[in-house]
Write a protein that binds this DNA or RNA. Structure first.
Lengths: 342, 342
DNA sequence: CTGAAAGCGCTAACAA
DNA sequence: TTGTTAGCGCTTTCAG
């Protein structure tokens, strides 16, 4: 172990309390001794061990974030911004990746609880509510994503897809599209439901239509988009426009479309959700429903901060808006929906 | 604060030592009391606070990783794999992002030291060696990237670019390329030097040539690639092939190339370094020098684990190999290097 | 087999 | 202004 306050105290011939006071800039200490001790500290390069501080005051200044897929740029950017907010206040971020595995999610929660982190942002929310209560019981506030419900100590940040999705559908309708397909996210995740509900609501509201075989499940990754799109291509007819649960999925669709010579947007319009960085870089640039990572991260932080000490208070419901970003992957509907060959 | 061993002890009418023994599965405890206490623990849902454990035994079971750019997929994947290795052993990962700022790097190191993490993987290694010694002095092992030097307690993982880069140059030469440009990384980072040195060595070794105006600095990001390429385009002549410090840079080049109607690889061959996931997805798929994230992460872990207790031992030098992945962004050199119009 | 006590490194209440 | 002491929550000798 490294050097401790008591040893410094011994060297300086004072008590550990004085050392502590110097370190923390208390003014109940003579200028002379302060200087002397500061020099000593520099000399022996003493660095206090703040684990002890945290044990003492009950706070660890560490927050946890549980992410379903760290390679998804949306989450990466979110983590980055969230971490930035934390370090501003000398806090730190523990990152846990679950790869969409329920057991890894549970395990991450368990470890965060053992560590007594000061708060958990749970972005891998699954349908079967896991043991979030255990955290709250131990005075750890939690913020979840897209669960659309709160409880004592547990806040929730939802993305308000509805307005944006309606805009998107109106936009597609104005382009002449009538038949829209949808590639959703993995079914176990709450946000998948939020996204598909928003899609169906908007479809109805804008007087458009879809059909069962055009609704396929993806996995929020590029490969899932490609695979799902293959399924849709296997149908007798195909939609003239396709909305996907996230941008990566859309990119997967575009990739498959390219490879079979389908032109975008002439033959098929595609739109995603998220607006990750590469969406503006792929060819053609992707029309998408943007979710601001800055706002999202800020709300996560706020939810955790607001929870404060009293976790018997019900958590808050936060909503981050979406905005439609129109690029080149969407265009006028082809004259009539063509058959897929093969 | 939540419930503690002592309270449990009081409830059960035993001592805290006994509770501790039950929790840790010691066999010096009667089956009967063990059962009784276990039930009690379940009943009151007691969860031990492992901060205290860590304070006691001097280990935090937390590792830190310092990353220059968390949105770079190479690092994201690395972090993900590294985190996976850690959780296998009930360890955790503190992530710090520096955005290439020296002061944020220093600050991250300072915080990791205050926390007394059990090891630090420092992937944002800058040229001016920062205060790594302070960590070692406090018994925290460190592993750096591409510094090509080790010292007591500080290991280093280099990417062995040389073999792969030579392969790549030989490959380009065989395609008829003679004049190769290079877009490097930000100059402050040690890995930039490693990458450019490998490039120049290989150029010489394969009897190829470059010229000063074709050597431009990028920033490891897409936009930097685009900007750097613009500079190269401004030259009277341009190279027939371009190698970049990483894939993101290459993608930036491709983007710019597209936008001015330059065909890849017919008019210009492009190759990157890293082999991130999207490199196989962009159009055309990118030829690149692959660095295995799995091997890389494993070596980081190994370096930290091997350091063990005795940090007076010199660190090890590790090397992860690269392999040339040939895709569609490279092809035969155009008949003669054309002038750029404009 | 179980308990008492000390201690990890620090801070804060209380005394001096 | 400085020191003494207790204690954060746990484990671990050492007694019993």
């Amino acid at each position: 172990m490294s050097i401790s306050v008591r040893e410094i105290a011994k060297m300086a011939g004072v008590s550990s309390a004085t050392i502590s006071r110097v370190i923390n800039g208390s003014d109940l200490v003579t200028e002379k001794t302060r200087k002397r001790i500061q020099h000593l500290i520099e000399e022996v390069k003493f660095v206090p061990n703040n684990r002890a501080i945290h044990l003492k005051n009950g706070k660890s200044q560490i927050y946890g974030i549980i992410i379903p897929d760290l390679t998804n740029p949306f989450f990466t950017e979110l983590v980055k911004i969230f971490e930035g907010l934390l370090v501003e206040n000398e806090r730190e971020l523990l990152v846990a990746n679950t790869d969409f595995h329920t057991n890894r999610t549970q395990d991450s929660l368990r470890r965060m609880l053992l560590r007594r982190v000061d708060g958990v942002a749970m972005l891998a929310s699954e349908l079967e509510v896991p043991s979030l209560d255990a955290l709250v019981r131990n005075e750890i506030p939690v913020v979840t994503a897209d669960r659309y419900r709160t409880s004592p100590g547990i806040s929730d940040v939802v993305v308000d897809f509805s307005a944006g999705m309606n805009q998107m559908m109106a936009y597609l309708r104005d382009l002449g599209h009538k038949n829209i397909g949808f590639i959703g996210g993995s079914s176990g995740i709450v946000t998948s439901r939020a996204r598909s509900v928003a899609f169906f609501d908007a479809i109805v509201k804008q007087g458009l239509s879809s059909r069962e075989s055009w609704i396929v499940e993806g996995n929020y990754r590029i490969d899932g988009g490609s695979t799902a799109f293959e399924q849709i291509l296997a149908c007798k007819e195909r939609p003239t426009a396709l909305v996907t649960a996230n941008d990566l999925t859309a990119i997967g669709v575009m990739r498959m479309a390219h490879s079979i010579g389908l032109r975008i947007p002439q033959d098929l319009s595609i739109a995603g959700i998220d607006d990750i960085e590469i969406s503006d870089i792929v060819n053609p640039p992707l029309t998408t429903l943007r979710i601001s990572r800055h706002e999202y991260a800020r709300m996560l932080m706020e939810a955790l901060d607001n929870a404060g000490e009293d976790l018997t208070q019900p958590g808050h419901q936060y909503a981050v808006p979406t905005s439609l970003i129109i690029r080149k992957s969407t265009g006028p509907a082809p004259k009539e929906s063509k058959k897929t060959e093969g």
